[in-house]
Design a protein around this nucleic acid. Structure first.
Lengths: 152, 152
DNA sequence: ACATAATTGTACAACCATGAACGAAAATCA
DNA sequence: TGATTTTCGTTCATGGTTGTACAATTATGT
């Protein structure tokens, strides 16, 4: 009794997921190349975009949102800070927390970078209409919820 | 005239893509944790699964399929080879090429690892029916084609 | 109040990934 | 054939990511 008689590639969910993973990997790579013109890396953009959305976010919360470790954030931030793109200020009521803010320059770079990312995504998805894109989003969000619920 | 009056997060394609990227990242992380039990890493599985599908594939072709650099493959393979999971044999008609094969042990580990990956994906996507999964796959493949065509 | 536990950010070592430069082998082409 | 170019794999330096251990600070519980 062999549970692997059917190869994974014959499984519809598996096969379709592979396409998702490839598309994700490709976008990531292409975004990396495109950001060279702004002299920033994808992880830097991820960080700045989140500070843009959530001004004053803590490093902990930022790491949680980006699904990375705190040490990752802790090592990347000084680089961005030295370039004058962000600021770190101590929270006065809880001295453990460092709150993050974009400088004017940082906001400017972030918007330029997001415009590049937006163009890349819109072009890549231009062959799918909005209903299709929305359905993909719904399915992916269900998938994320399912994984969170599983905990594993 | 500011082209960024509308934030990216208000753009439907962008917003939905973020969900794709998050799901992809989560699966990757969870797969990594799950593979600890077999003492292999995700990149190792990617490699072995492709050798499983395409016996005798060259390192070059393997790198191309995985969308990584040749140096990446070249550095990972010796690790897997030392564990007796794969074999590298020189092509006799073209001595530049090293052809890759799984050992029996490698095939066994690969199937176990693929079963873990399959379970993870099937569970995560269990809230979506097959039509939905197929449509996601179609859209992602169109997206990949679009990016390949753009070249950029 | 005081001891214990939990949280926040950092430092460090290990590993993975990348791109450029290189040598060997094969293909091209004159 | 002989010279040039291309392809394949490796090596090396650089930089990204992770997990663990740690110091400082705050929260908890008696």
């Amino acid at each position: 009794m062999n549970e692997n008689q059917v190869l994974p590639w014959d499984n519809p969910r598996f096969k379709n997921w592979i396409a998702v993973a490839r598309a994700s990997q490709l976008i990531h790579q292409k975004l990396g190349r495109a950001l060279v013109s702004l002299d920033i890396k994808v992880p830097h953009l991820d960080i700045m975009a989140n500070i843009y959305r959530f001004e004053g976010i803590s490093q902990q919360d930022l790491a949680h949102k980006l699904l990375v470790g705190r040490s990752n954030i802790s090592m990347l931030l000084p680089q961005i800070e030295k370039r004058g793109l962000i600021e770190r200020r101590k929270d006065e009521t809880d001295k453990r927390i460092l709150r993050l803010y974009l400088t004017d320059k940082g906001r400017e770079v972030t918007l330029k970078a997001l415009a590049i990312e937006l163009e890349l995504i819109e072009h890549s998805l231009s062959t799918s209409n909005l209903d299709e894109c929305n359905q993909v989003g719904r399915i992916m969000n269900r998938m994320i919820d399912q994984m969170d619920a599983w905990g594993k």
